[in-house]
């Protein structure tokens, strides 16, 4: 299946809100992983993961906790580098550039691949400074007005601007949980990434905040490649076009979301979807 998805170039440049689920197969491949393994010290956490991730679509990773889905996500922008004793094997290519190429600059990579974390983690700075942080360190704004523009447009894109426009100088931590998470999304967008990785972005939020974030993800997919790890199958079904099921560090099955949920090939996938694996 990934062979087809990788090669065929049938991109519809016009944004289609009601995208046909099967269109995902025709999207350009943005990320492709081959035989990725991860060891933490002596323990192997991932076993030969190979997957292609399509452009301008939401791909979700599901599976029971500890199955390696977050670990794999963190391989994509090399966040595993920050964990002592972690070793990554295999290859991940972003637009043909090997992510683990020793000559590749991690800083540049992470500017291209943004990340949103499980728990909202705004910096202990004002709302404005939180969003401006990325553009500032990367030198993306030539002037103060430039920076203002980036901040406002990022907050708009994250659907937060109207709520916070009068208090941009208040600390980011003063927002509610859902707002904080959208602030973190705005923060990631402000750098202008191609890919946004989301590691269970709604697990710390209440249902209403979750619904708002899910809507946002659906809107964002028109401009970004989004990879989301979630423990909620409903969420995967709601927001993603492609789904991959992980179990015990292995990629068991991947495909168009509808297929995975309605017609899983593997017994383990069936069991998980039926709620037989915790």
């Amino acid at each position: 299946m990934d062979m087809i998805a990788g090669k065929i170039k049938l991109t519809s440049k016009t944004v289609d809100q009601s995208m046909n689920p099967l269109d995902v197969l025709e999207r350009e491949t943005r990320l492709s992983a081959r035989d990725v393994t991860v060891h933490y010290g002596d323990k192997q956490a991932l076993f030969g993961i190979s997957i292609d991730i399509p452009d301008r679509a939401v791909t979700s990773f599901i599976g029971p906790s500890g199955c390696g889905k977050s670990t794999f996500l963190r391989c994509i922008n090399r966040m595993n580098d920050t964990i002592e004793g972690a070793r990554v094997g295999g290859s991940i290519k972003l637009d043909g550039d090997d992510v683990y190429d020793p000559n590749l600059d991690v800083v540049e990579l992470r500017a291209r691949v943004g990340m949103v974390f499980q728990k909202p983690n705004p910096f202990p700075k004002s709302i404005y400074e939180n969003v401006a942080y990325g553009p500032k360190i990367h030198g993306l704004a030539r002037s103060r007005t430039d920076l203002d523009e980036i901040v406002v447009s990022s907050l708009r894109k994250a659907g937060l601007f109207e709520e916070v426009k009068d208090r941009l100088n208040e600390p980011g931590t003063s927002l509610s949980g859902g707002q904080q998470q959208r602030l973190c999304i705005a923060r990631a967008i402000a750098v202008g990434p191609q890919v946004i990785l989301m590691d269970e972005p709604c697990s710390a939020l209440d249902p209403i905040a979750t619904a708002i974030i899910e809507e946002l993800i659906d809107e964002l997919r028109e401009n970004y490649t989004i990879v989301i790890v979630t423990h909620s199958m409903q969420q995967a079904a709601r927001v993603s076009q492609k789904t991959a099921f992980f179990h015990l560090g292995k990629l068991i099955e991947e495909g168009v979301t509808e297929d995975i949920f309605t017609n899983p090939e593997h017994k383990q996938t069936q069991d998980y979807i039926m709620g037989r694996i915790g």
């Binding site: 800083v107 030198g139 659907g159 202008g192 191609q194």
Partner: peptide, 24 residues
Amino acid sequence: MTDTLLSAASPGSRNREQVRKGLR
């Protein structure tokens, strides 16, 4: 919210150039 997307700084080459410049 949809209209705001139009003013988006297009993710891609312009940003990447900027980032590269500052790397050294």
